[in-house]
Amino acid sequence: MKAVYTKPISLTETANSYCPGCGHGLVHRLVAEVIDELGVRERTIGIAPVGCAVFAYDYFNFDVTEAPHGRPPAVATAIKRCLPDRIVFTYQGDGDLASIGTNEIIHAANRGENITVIFINNAVYGMTGGQMAPTTLEGMKTTTTTKGRDVKVAGHPLRVSELLSSIEGAVYIERVTVIDPANVIKAKKAIKKAFQNQIDKKGFSFVEVLSPCPINWGLKPLDALKFIKEKMMEYFKLGVIKDSTNSKESK
């Protein structure tokens, strides 16, 4: 992390309304820095999800659209196909992407859409007040699993990156987190690669970010980071899950 805070051009002056210790703001910043560094701000179109990041269009200083809950990959597909030389990315939570939008993400990956997907895994539905998400850990308490997630009735947490890795059309999938400076640097590198892949026409690139939601986890910001390190990373292993970037011809 840079010692001095300089705002990327790709972020607006608007102060974001995320809770203290939330991962969204930090990941927005990483995305904005990458877009600045790649010099593509003027040809970038972002798709905001339904979820806490719904107002992303107020925070990013480039063209951004809303999309119905779970549908950003379908919207992105059409934008990219109509304007192939623009840089198109979706930014989605785990309710958006891994629950209501599983169909859209799987098929966008399967078509090998040349887009970038930033997937925020915070193990809960943030915006609606902390209900269970597909990614909620076993035993984890949420407002709809007050005794903890019982995998016998609610199923096991869904490993979306691993799931997508079996899809031929997905060329690059990495799971990262933002719990400390070293991991933030890695996360930024992954995000940059996912955008670079799109510029190089390599195909569908996907970065999953384990991200804190202290409010809905009922934890202090620092404890939330610890929760990720001790609990989430145990189940959701960090690292490159798939990378066939080098074997893919530009398309």
Binding site: I45, I47, T65, A67, P68, R71, A74, V75, A76, T77, A78, I79, R81, C82, L83, E104
Partner: peptide, 9 residues
């Protein structure tokens, strides 16, 4: 939703 996206462009 694809029509939504295409229309945006």
């Amino acid at each position: 939703n694809m029509v939504f996206g295409a229309s945006l462009t």
